[in-house]
Design a protein around this nucleic acid. Sequence first.
DNA 1: TTGTATGCGTTATCAT
DNA 2: ATGATAACGCATACAA
Lengths: 346, 346
Amino acid sequence: MTSDKHIDQSGPPTMQDVAKLAGVSQPTVSRVLNNTKTTIPVSKKTRDKVLVAVKELGYRPNMTARSLRTQRTHMISLLVADITNNFYHLIAQAIQEVARAHDYDMLIANSDHVYENEKRFCEAVIRRPVDGVIMVPQYLTYGDLDELITLTNTPITVLGQHINHPAIDVVGADDEQATFEAITWLIAERGHKSIGYIGVALDYPPSPRRWQGFQRALKTAGLTFDPDFYMQGDWSFESGRQAINRLLKIGKRPSAIFALNDLMAIGAILALQDAGLSVPDDVAIMGFDNMREATIVRPRLTTIAQYPTEIGQKVAEALFDRIEGREPDARRELTVPLKLIVRESA
Amino acid sequence: MTSDKHIDQSGPPTMQDVAKLAGVSQPTVSRVLNNTKTTIPVSKKTRDKVLVAVKELGYRPNMTARSLRTQRTHMISLLVADITNNFYHLIAQAIQEVARAHDYDMLIANSDHVYENEKRFCEAVIRRPVDGVIMVPQYLTYGDLDELITLTNTPITVLGQHINHPAIDVVGADDEQATFEAITWLIAERGHKSIGYIGVALDYPPSPRRWQGFQRALKTAGLTFDPDFYMQGDWSFESGRQAINRLLKIGKRPSAIFALNDLMAIGAILALQDAGLSVPDDVAIMGFDNMREATIVRPRLTTIAQYPTEIGQKVAEALFDRIEGREPDARRELTVPLKLIVRESA
DNA sequence: TTGTATGCGTTATCAT
DNA sequence: ATGATAACGCATACAA
């Protein structure tokens, strides 16, 4: 259709094409292109000839070939646990911004919380090497990660803190302490003595930490936990709703409930309201994450805020430190803040 | 630490290493590995020797080298307009599932609705070729895409329908008709005669189509549109809120408002409620998308549902048709359904 | 059935 | 300051 330029015989122009047009050798083209700043000797005259030819042909370097030669890809990989979760989007967005600033592309994958997909991701990294990896592993073992590192020699940074490997920086939050403080506030400032808990299976990394913080707060306040008020969900909105529906059948209820994430907390609020109960008067609800929906639900959700943008930035910068050779002396464990946001639900 | 296996002298094992260990030539290894199904003559004996060596060394093919040689990457790229938008997540998830089934990796990028980032994405595709591209272009011109195609010869599939290029399949929805039907329902079934509109700039692809459907419904019903009831937002929650706040200052208001997406619709609901008005009694609200938040807000949002998972599947399958050589005779324009979901807000 | 030779598009090490 | 030449890891045409 629009063939107003040259006839491309086969595929994009290569350095050979540029070299021929400029009347120089192919390595010379390479030198010109790779030393816009680092002053490697190349005469002003040839440099100009080359640059003209580059522009004329619309030449772009082929990254695949470059990668094969340099063993660097200028790509990083990100593995998240749930691509539909807003929390990870903001993290991904922040990471991508940092990557972009370093002129890196980002490959993103999604494990859907299943081990097989996590392994598959590692496999992909081994077969298509990247310069750095950021991940939120759920089930990957120390051994899995160690194998990945020894095989690829790729810098890895991890979100969450259950990995203790000398070559892996970790960015996480102090869930235990934040939960402790939030529950303590619920007891001291709001006067609750009977507090329920909507958790998730303990093999999700943050689960045991938050559970410990919760228990510590109760113990410190001299309260006991009624096991009937332990409900288990799976992070989903619907599971929060179902937890409440099960609770309402047992003939007693706590005066407040702490849910491990906002989605379950909101499901709980809606289920309570559907049952004719008032939040927070009959039951107060506290969540975790501070996702956008927390200000949409009524009453607005009181929750422990994470700062995904900050998390993403930190984790990406830690990664680029290693990628660009600024290796830390030892494994770093960075902590990002958490903060209780008091709204109307508790 | 865990060096229970062989000493890796430098990087991952290559076909050479496998060949040496198996006592065969490197091309033989290649043949064995690439013809598990296509019966290319290779003796059972050597095949076994090779496979043992492969397992022994933990050999994995290097995709970079393979790509350079075959000119295929087994990767597709996805460009979305807003990585924080739930709508795109579900699309991305569906696409990734299809890609996974075809044993492809997926590279995802995010334009944030800005032209420069869209161009940058094209640039990335040119420099790091992929086997297929799916995108939601906002500003890219026919020329931009045509250049991309002639330069890379890569199959492209587009979400939304403003691109009319012979080599580009398009998957979209019939926004105009769906909007027409929804507004007609608002008029006929709910008796509204004065309907406001929260739109976005017309250079967002779906914007003019929905605007036309809206106007056609009014005209068909013999109603006129009061220009004072045209409000402009930018897709965001906050802009819906602000639109209402501006509206409330002009001393008159419509009995219903149609917003171009759920986020703005929800912002509108909350702003109206904050002003002491009732939804839907004082003002009815209708949205577009049926995102998760639509069932969280109270009253629940009446909205036009898109089916992102289905969209993602269709667009991915259309792409793989081309990638795998099942070229359609002509440009295909696939339409996915839209459906009015009636809840309480209108 | 298998081995030899070549090339994908770069970068890097030699020379000159 | 620049041009040959080799190498990255793999796939394939050709020879044997």
